[in-house]
Each structure stands twice: as structure tokens, then as C-alpha cells.
Design a protein around this nucleic acid. Structure first.
Length: 791
DNA sequence: GGTAAATCTTTTTTT
DNA sequence: AAGATTTACC
């Protein structure tokens, strides 16, 4: 980093190493501004310098609100501001994700929030993650005695989440319900809300929605934050959703949407900064409610806003950037822009066709090793990117077998592990004993002899008497049906919790967690279960204690509330320690905002990337393409793009065609063994015969021969697909292999037209998973029996 | 109420 | 193929 520059004392003395557009973005501090910042254009630098500039101009840090996309980005940004200004100079700055900023506001103000049907949360609310929210949704559907086949909890949760992101309440949704199903949905939504309310819990979407409603309902609260935050900056603006935008708008303008008409923007913008930074081409979270049209509409919402484009890319070699530019040009919904690379051409982009997923992993890892051997790169500079988390497995297997160390970012998150959730459940109960989910989770962990039927009786009693589950536990003696040893066991649990409650005040956080682990007998049970800690559970629990200790070191004022909040909102990427001796693996979503010298994008196959769920929808396909753009633009020096002819999914081989994204790039920028042309691929001959080696290509091929022998022979002739073993001996007309590759449009006599989403099994035994346009769900069809025609 | 066996489900991306 | 969840039996 070249950030050893002193801050200028006035606006007339520009900072060195910043280009003209960057400087204009930094020094414009009056009024709204949209910064369209392409990948690698120094967006983070602009934001940090702008914050530092504001503070150096006398703005109190507590007047600045900076919103980032991840907690890690927040941490990094405040660190960089400190580097620019000196330690502690940024004290009081509000910086964090929308979710963490909203929790901070709600912890203070939720008492003033008026929920529907008089539901008023208390400030010791707990935050439910996706799985808790899922449990609540299942409970809601069950409570209404609805069939969870017809009302799929996952589906409905997704639907409710979307409604919340659009600020639509159950009540509002019910009033507009047009059919029977919508009415039921509204009922489920409302029941779900009731369950969360009874547990004094909020889900992720509530953090945003309830903050917005709080600000709408209370002019005094709104005005307080409006006065405080005179300088607001939002990063990754293209991934903002409606609720988030409305929250920012409420604080920036200090008025409701209705009052907005009378607002005098001329006076509003005096000494007020509102800067949003984004790149429409990198909008990859629409499935989470993000709406990049907010970005496109910004100038319409704020006609007096300034707009600045950062179009110089300081990150990627020219060849890499050209590939990215060529691919993204295939999107129609975008603001035209061409990123200009300031770096040399660099090497050609390598495109590799692997025999299978293992071959692909071997190839990438060996190429990475070669680059590390040159001494120019460390393993930590090399990153493997993929579409789905499940793809990490093959890479991990092979890295492990080679004895190489690696970090997987994402996937199973630390705090989603069973033992961590158990400990967190105890802490949650101490903090908020209304949280019935946590009570249920650990009531019998460690085993206390309290079973399912007992829990059901307790719940019934609690519901009948309008008390919380924990209150019911306390009154167990008055519940007629529970007898024998059970009341004593329950009493034991209650006294453990009461004992913990008595200790929480005067014990430091990590000591309290250790106390909890011992007092509850949880640690003992772990030790009994697995004395050698083969599963690493004890280690994870110990790690958790360290997490708490670190939290206290970072936040000297921190308490249980703050710790629990942070634990709920922390994502895996936030914890990812940059270790220079470890290869990095992650999804392209997780890679947003990061950069690496060496990058491989793996699994470039139709149906995987672009994902099968996006094949038939133009909007979704464009989002996949933006994701590809994000992946490619992570690379500084070297880029590998790979795909496999077949891959093991759910224990079956699946066949795919090379991703369309590869074909969208100018082929003269590629090198490698690829064959993207379908006619050539199926014109006859095996893959190996088909190989047309040139100098460089042959070298790769040679490596492959020597390096991947074991994988080639072990897997070359896989056991016959098990999908249709019974009929396989019958003499039938055999369709050629991959008659209908993934993505093919097909016609069926009965079902009409559809798209092939998967090919399961090999050649003649292949069956095709087809999504028909008019029928919900997918149909598994065998062309030997079903009349299928490509159209 | 607890265990072992059988069966179902998973893989889109995440605050 | 692996994990989670449900069921069957003690």
C-alpha cells in the first residue's frame, strides 16, 4: 500500500497518487453524489480518503455514518482511516453493515417501536439466523395445521423475507391478498411474526424493516439521527435493497416520504455529505432483495446529485480485463462503461477442459504450485473461486492428499456448528429467557432425561397460560401431566440457568463462558462423548472462548448483548485470517471486494455456472454473468478458467457443456486445451484423440499425463450409473451421448416445451431432468421411453 | 426416554 | 456420498 501520504491541510492541496476522478469524488462534500466505481478502480481508497478528509476538515467522527457490505470491510476501512489520520482519530465513527448499524440503533430504541397488534419488542431481543428462522417458519405452518408439502417452509420463508425487504407487513399483505393461497400466506407470515415476538427475537430482515418503521413512527428519533449523521457514505450501493435505501433516505432527509415534497434540498445539503459508491455490473445479490435499479434511479431521486465514474482499473492485467469487459458486454441491463487497464497485457488467460472434477482440481492446484515455486507468489496470493460451496470438497480432498494447507471461506460457518450453537443458546437464555428456541435446544443438552413428550406438555401449558416456555419450566410442579423424575430434572435445568444469571453481571465475558461450560456440564459431556476430540468440538468450544476474549480486547466496553449481536451478524469472511502460506477457496459471492494475484474460476459449465436455476430467465442469467464478471476481475496477474466434462454430484456423474461465458470472451486471449465448439466436441473421437496439442498446450497435456495418472485410471470407466439398473440389459435403440446437453430446449408430446437442466448418468443410460415451462417442478425423463425432441 | 436403523434431503449465492 | 431426520424397537 502506498498510504503513507499525509492528509492535505486544505482542498487546494490534492493528495498524490489519486487520479482526477478519485480526487473529485473525495473533495465533493456538499450534497448527494453517485460514484460509479468499476472493479479495481480504487473505490475503497476513495471512501477511506473521503472519510479521512472529512475528519481532517473538522467533522467529528461521530457525525459520519459509513455503511459497508461486510463486517470485514468495515474493520479494514476503519483501520485504513486510522492509518491516514493517526491512531484513535476516528474514534466515534459509525461504520458497519446495514445489519449491524440497525441492531445498534434497535438496541437503544426498540422500546419506541410500535409493532402490529401491539407487538412491542424489548431491547434484549435475540437475533435469529436462517436456521432459527426456518424453525420458526415450520412451527408457524404447523400451528395453522397446514400441510408443509403444500406450504413448503423454505419457500414461504423466502417469500416472507422478500415481503419484509419490501417493507410489506403481514397485515398489508393480507389486505391485498387476491386468492386463497395468498390469504394463507398472510396468515403464516403473521403467525411467524407472533412466534418471533413471543421469543423476543428478530430475524435478519427485521433488523432492517423494524429500524425503518421505527424511524417512520418516531419523528424525534428520526430527527436525532438525522442531526447526528451529517455525512453518510454507502459502499456497494448496487446491492442495496428497498428497506436499506429507505433507512438511509430517512436519516439523510430526516422526513417521511410524504413530507419529502416540502423539503428544501438547497438548505439540506449545506454541510451534509451523501455519497453512494457502486458498480451495477457487480450486482450479485438480487436474490436477497438487492435492487440495482436503486443505483440506476439515484440521479432521478436526487436531480441535484453529482456523478463520477471511476473507469481506470489498477488491478488486472490487460488480457484479464479484456476478457471481463467482453463478457459483461453481453448484458443489456447496465450502464455502458469500459474499464481501462493501466497495467501491461500480462499472460494469456488459461482455459482448461478437465476430464472430471478431480482432474480439474489437480490441474488448478498443480498450476498454483508451479507459480508458487517461481518464488513470485505465496499460496495466500492464489485463490480458487467456484459457484457453489459444495464444489470446495474436491479441492479440499486433493489439497489434503498433497499435504498443502488451505482456507475455505464460507460454507459451514463457525457459529453454525452444533457445539457453538449450543453454547450460544445458553448465553441467549441468560440474556433473554423468553427465547424458547434456545431453551428447547439445550434443555436436554447435556442429557437430563427430558424428552420430546415432556417438551410438548410444557409448550402446551405455556401456550394455555400465555407464559414463556421458561416460565413454564419454573412452574413445572403445577403441570399435572409431568411426574416421576422429570420435574426434578427440569428443576435442575432452571437452577443452572438462575445460577448463571446471578453470575453474568460480575464476571468478565470469557470467564463467564468458561463458567457456563462447566456449570452446565456441557464440556464434560463433550469430553465423555469424544475423549480424543476427534471431531474437534472441544477445540471449537475453546476457540469460542478466545473469540469472546478477542471481542473484549477490541471492545473494552463490550457486554453480553454486544457480543451476542456480533456473533449473530458475523459472517465467515469476516473471520478469514489472511494466511500467506494457505491457498484460498471461496465462492464468487464471498470474493466480492477482494483481489488475488492468481485466480482460478472453476466449474464453468452450463447448469453449474451459469446455474441451472438461471438458464430460463434472462434477468437471472444476467446476474450470473455479473457474477462471472466479479470472478474474473478478482485476478491481478494470472487467470485460469476451467470446466469439466463430467462431475460427481449427489454421488452420480453429471455431464455438462462448457459455459456460455467462455464463448463470450475473445478466444485470441485464451491459451489451453479447450474445445468450446459443440460440433467439434461431438464430431466423433474421444476427448484424448480430440486433443490438438500445440507447443504450450502439449506441455500442459504432458503435465496432466504424468500428474493425474491415478485419477485418470481410477475414474475413467466409472461403475455403470445406478440410476436405471434394471432396464440396462434390454436391447434398445441407443441414443448418442449427450443427446440433449444441459440448456437444450426440448419438446414433449404431453408436457410441451421445456429446458434440460441436468443430465444424469452416462451416454445411453442418461436420463434428463427437464423443467417444462408450464409445469411446476422438474420431470426426470428417459429418452428411450419418453418422446423428447430438441427444438 | 434413549438408541439404532431406515429413510429422506441436499447444492445457488449470504447479512 | 454425506448428513439430517424420522421411525422402530428396546
Amino acid at each position: 500500500m502506498t498510504n503513507t501520504i499525509a492528509m492535505p491541510s486544505s482542498e487546494t492541496k490534492p493528495m498524490p497518487n489519486l487520479n482526477d476522478a478519485q480526487q473529485r469524488a473525495i473533495y465533493h462534500t456538499q450534497g448527494p453524489m453517485l460514484v460509479l466505481a468499476g472493479a479495481g478502480s480504487g473505490k475503497t481508497r476513495v471512501l477511506t480518503h473521503k472519510i479521512a478528509h472529512l475528519i481532517s476538515q473538522g467533522v467529528d467522527p461521530s457525525q459520519i455514518l459509513a455503511v459497508t457490505f461486510t463486517n470485514k470491510a468495515a474493520k479494514e476501512m476503519s483501520h485504513r482511516v486510522e492509518t491516514l489520520l493517526g491512531k484513535g482519530q476516528d474514534a466515534g465513527l459509525w461504520i458497519g453493515t446495514f445489519h449491524s448499524i440497525c441492531s445498534r440503533i434497535l438496541r437503544r430504541e426498540i422500546g419506541k417501536y410500535q409493532g402490529d397488534s401491539g407487538r412491542n419488542w424489548k431491547n434484549n431481543f435475540v437475533i435469529y439466523d436462517e436456521s432459527d428462522s426456518m424453525t420458526a417458519m415450520k412451527e408457524a405452518i404447523k400451528a395453522l395445521e397446514l400441510d408443509d408439502k403444500l406450504y413448503n417452509p423454505k419457500n414461504i420463508r423466502y417469500h416472507v423475507s422478500n415481503l419484509k425487504n419490501q417493507m410489506i407487513s403481514a397485515f398489508q399483505y393480507a389486505s391485498k391478498a387476491v386468492d386463497f393461497r395468498a390469504e394463507k400466506l398472510a396468515r403464516i407470515y403473521d403467525t411467524y411474526e407472533t412466534i418471533l415476538y413471543r421469543n423476543n427475537a428478530l430475524d435478519f430482515d427485521d433488523l432492517l424493516k423494524k429500524t425503518v418503521e421505527l424511524l417512520q413512527q418516531n419523528p424525534d428519533v428520526r430527527d436525532r439521527y438525522h442531526r447526528q449523521f451529517t455525512h453518510i457514505l454507502v459502499d456497494e450501493f448496487q446491492d442495496t435493497n428497498d428497506a436499506q435505501y429507505e433507512m438511509v433516505r430517512l436519516i439523510v432527509e430526516g422526513c417521511t416520504k410524504q413530507e419529502r415534497m416540502q423539503l428544501n434540498f438547497n438548505t439540506l445539503w449545506q454541510n451534509r455529505t451523501f455519497t453512494v459508491v457502486g458498480d451495477v455490473d457487480q450486482s450479485i445479490y438480487s436474490w436477497r432483495g438487492a435492487n440495482f435499479k436503486i443505483c440506476l434511479n439515484f440521479q432521478h431521486d436526487y436531480p441535484d446529485s453529482q456523478m463520477i465514474k471511476l473507469e481506470h482499473n489498477y488491478r488486472s492485467a490487460k488480457n484479464i480485463l479484456q476478457v471481463a469487459n467482453a463478457i459483461i458486454e453481453n448484458n443489456s441491463e447496465r450502464l455502458p462503461k469500459e474499464l481501462i487497464s493501466v497495467k501491461p497485457d500480462g499472460e494469456k488467460v488459461t482455459c482448461y477442459e478437465a476430464k472430471d472434477d478431480r482432474d480439474e482440481a489437480f490441474y488448478i492446484i498443480e498450476r498454483f504450485q508451479k507459480l508458487v515455486q517461481t518464488g513470485k507468489y505465496r499460496p495466500g496470493d492464489c485463490c480458487i473461486l467456484y459457484r457453489t460451496n459444495s464444489q470446495s470438497r474436491v479441492f479440499e480432498d486433493i489439497l489434503m492428499s498433497k499435504g498443502l494447507s488451505y482456507t475455505v471461506v464460507g460454507g459451514i460457518k463457525f457459529y453454525e456448528r452444533r457445539e457453538i450453537k449450543d453454547v450460544l443458546a445458553y448465553l441467549n437464555i441468560v440474556f433473554n429467557d423468553q427465547d424458547a428456541f434456545s431453551v428447547k435446544r439445550v434443555l436436554n443438552v447435556p442429557k437430563r432425561g427430558i424428552g420430546k413428550t415432556t417438551v410438548e406438555k410444557l409448550e402446551t401449558y405455556a401456550n394455555q397460560n400465555g407464559i414463556s416456555l421458561y416460565q413454564a419450566l419454573k412452574q413445572v410442579d403445577q403441570i399435572p401431566d409431568i411426574s416421576g423424575k422429570t420435574p426434578k430434572a427440569i428443576g435442575g435445568f432452571v437452577s443452572v440457568i438462575e445460577n448463571l444469571k446471578a453470575h453474568v453481571e460480575n464476571t468478565s465475558l470469557h470467564e463467564f463462558i468458561i463458567y457456563t461450560l462447566e456449570e452446565t456440564g456441557y464440556l464434560n459431556e463433550l469430553k465423555m462423548e469424544d475423549p480424543l476430540d476427534n471431531d474437534g468440538r472441544i477445540q471449537n468450544v475453546e476457540e469460542f472462548v478466545s473469540v469472546a476474549r478477542n471481542y473484549l480486547l477490541d471492545n473494552p466496553e463490550g457486554d453480553l448483548a454486544g457480543f451476542l449481536t456480533q456473533m449473530s451478524l458475523l459472517s465467515d469472511i469476516d473471520n478469514a485470517e489472511p494466511a500467506e502460506n494457505k491457498f484460498v477457496l471461496m465462492t464468487m459471492h464471498a470474493a466480492k471486494g477482494l483481489e488475488f494475484d492468481v485466480v482460478a474460476v472453476a466449474g464453468l459449465e452450463e447448469g453449474l455456472f451459469p446455474h441451472s436455476r438461471s438458464l430460463s430467465d434472462k434477468t437471472q442469467m444476467e446476474e450470473e454473468r455479473r457474477l462471472m464478471y466479479v470472478g474474473v476481475t478478482r485476478a491481478r496477474d494470472h487467470l485460469f478458467l476451467t470446466y469439466s466434462r463430467r462431475r460427481l454430484v449427489f454421488g452420480e456423474f453429471r455431464y455438462g457443456m462448457p459455459s456460455r461465458f467462455l464463448k463470450e470472451a475473445p478466444q485470441e486471449l485464451f491459451t489451453g486445451n479447450y474445445t468450446l465448439d459443440q460440433e467439434e466436441r461431438y464430431g466423433g473421437g474421444s476427448f484424448d484423440d480430440d486433443y490438438r496439442g500445440g507447443g504450450y498446450k502439449r506441455k500442459i497435456y504432458g503435465q496432466r499425463e504424468s500428474g493425474y495418472t491415478s485419477s485418470r485410471f481410477e475414474e475413467d470407466e466409472p461403475p455403470v450409473s445406478r440410476i436405471r439398473p434394471k432396464r440396462s440389459t434390454e436391447v434398445l435403440k441407443v441414443p448418442p451421448p449427450n443427446l440433449f446437453p444441459v440448456g437444450t430446449r426440448v419438446q414433449h408430446v404431453k408436457f410441451g416445451q421445456g429446458t434440460v437442466e441436468q443430465v444424469i448418468g452416462e451416454g445411453e443410460k442418461a436420463v434428463y431432468n427437464v423443467k417444462f415451462d408450464t409445469i411446476p417442478g422438474r420431470k426426470l425423463l428417459d429418452p428411450k421411453f419418453a418422446k423428447l425432441e430438441a427444438i
